[in-house]
Design a protein around this nucleic acid. Structure first.
Length: 415
RNA sequence: GUGGCUGUAGCUCAGCGGUAGAGCUCCCGGUUGUGGUCCGGGCGGUCGCAGGUUCAAAUCCUGUCAGCCACCCCA
């Protein structure tokens, strides 16, 4: 009579069963470790923000705010939004404590962010995104550091320099050309979008002419001539000196958001079956303008876990699952149950993760269960062991057994 | 928001007008306190849902819902 509930997770979000959680942890831990190795400190915040943070002008792209956020009214009649990105939150946090913070500031976070849109490969409604930013540095050294970090991150995931390429560009270049050709604000946005998709657009010039008329040809001409800037050249050579050679200047890289003010970059997968932008970032010096009048120079990037997972998958770099449990204790006789618990307590105090059988099953079944859970070691305990104090420690992958006393177990497993 | 593809057992899928299938998983067995392999047996489906065509529909048609992919847009 009663309709049963669906076991599907909510549209566009994922369940993380232990195997997936393992990969998820690996991704997050790798991100954190690399960021910290460059001196970045972790921060965090609630997933809930007042909606004004995103609806204010300049905070983000308008469509995202109006149609692509999870927004609701709380019981106190406040408009609340599940954060669609982390940047406005950092801006808020920075502006609040600006005077007390020690600049330059290096911060990172791996928050989950939400976007109400139609799910597809590489894009879900919820994902975790590494946000890495350096605040308070005007010089191009900040870009060099951020891109070095991004590159180091790719290598930490097991990628080689052939697996990905970094393309850099400079918004300032575009801006100066826009000014010369007196391109208006609305036109700018459209042109940026066109440039972003240039490689994919067949009749790029026609589309460009529709927006700019006669200025289209001139814009294209200037773009191809002024395809670099001193800042870009300097950045490129710095990165090369640091051994990063899979970098190139590409003026078609503009990034979607308006808030970038200078150098932008994007990292691409070179594999033909996954040939697309993995992540990117750039300089945005007007970040805190919503809260503050004094500009704050910032350079950063965002990297999503879904794209990383796809990348790892296509390049065969996913880590193999292993249980966090080290040892499974099988019971060979039910009157030694408390003795087994005692052994478990002792081993846990030595730092081992120990799981104890609770069911009345045959030893063979118990071992099968432990193996299915990918627990590396098992030990059967019955009357003999309780009396002698020596155990047979079995390594499931190899099938090898070793006679050990209680005090030798931890070292046998850790080695 | 637009377009394409797909919904059959817990999972992956075959069947494409004539009584619902395979592999994997799961459960039981191949006697004693040692798993993976092998062998035998078993559980399990209103063929997404609702209409229609037909003597007969998982199969053909229409609608609907869901999922995937692409576009739009972009973290």
């Amino acid at each position: 009579m009663s309709e049963k509930l669906s076991t599907e997770p909510y549209k566009g979000v994922r369940d993380f069963y232990p195997e997936e959680q393992f990969v998820h942890n690996y991704i997050r831990e790798t991100m954190a470790a690399v960021a910290e190795s460059f001196g970045y400190s972790e921060y965090s915040a609630s997933i809930l923000e007042p909606s004004e943070l995103y609806s204010s002008k300049g905070a983000a792209n308008e469509e995202i705010v109006n149609e692509q956020t999870y927004t609701f009214t709380d019981r106190g009649k406040r408009q609340v939004t599940l954060r669609p990105e982390m940047t406005p939150t950092v801006a808020r946090m920075l502006a609040a404590k600006r005077r007390e913070l020690a600049f330059p500031l290096r911060w990172y976070s791996v928050p989950n962010v939400f976007r109400y849109e139609r799910p597809q490969r590489g894009r879900l409604r919820e994902h975790w995104q590494l946000n890495c930013d350096i605040f308070g540095v005007t010089e191009v050294t900040a870009e060099a550091e951020i891109i070095s970090l991004a590159s180091a991150l790719m290598h930490a995931f097991g990628a080689t320099s052939e697996d990905f390429e970094i393309r850099i560009s400079d918004r300032a270049l575009l801006e100066s050309i826009f000014t010369e050709l007196s391109v208006t604000g609305d036109e700018k946005a459209t042109v940026m979008r066109l440039l972003d998709k240039r490689a994919k657009t067949e009749n790029f010039m026609n589309a460009l002419t529709e927006v700019l008329g006669e200025r289209a040809r001139e814009l294209d001409d200037r773009l191809s001539r002024a395809s670099s800037s001193t800042a870009l050249e300097s950045l490129l050579s710095t990165l090369n000196e640091r051994g990063i050679h899979n970098v190139s200047i590409d003026t078609s890289i503009v990034r979607g958001f308006d808030y970038y003010t200078g150098i932008v970059f994007e990292v691409f997968d070179t594999a033909s079956e996954n040939n697309r932008s993995l992540f990117g970032g750039g300089r945005y010096d007007n970040l805190t303008s919503l809260f503050d009048t004094e500009p704050l120079p910032a350079v950063g990037f965002g990297m999503g876990d879904v794209t990383v997972r796809d990348f790892l998958e296509t390049h065969n770099l996913l880590p193999e699952y292993s249980s966090s449990t080290d040892l499974y204790l099988c019971s060979a006789s039910d009157d030694v149950a408390e003795y087994i618990e005692e052994v478990a307590r002792e081993l846990r105090s030595e730092g081992l993760n120990v799981e104890v059988n609770l069911l009345d099953k045959k030893v063979g079944e118990q071992i099968k269960l432990a193996d299915k859970k990918k627990i590396p070691f098992v030990m059967c305990i019955g009357k003999d062991e309780a009396e002698s104090g020596t155990f047979s420690l079995k390594h499931l992958a190899s099938g090898e057994e070793k006679e050990v006393g209680l005090k030798e177990i931890a070292t046998a497993i850790f080695s």
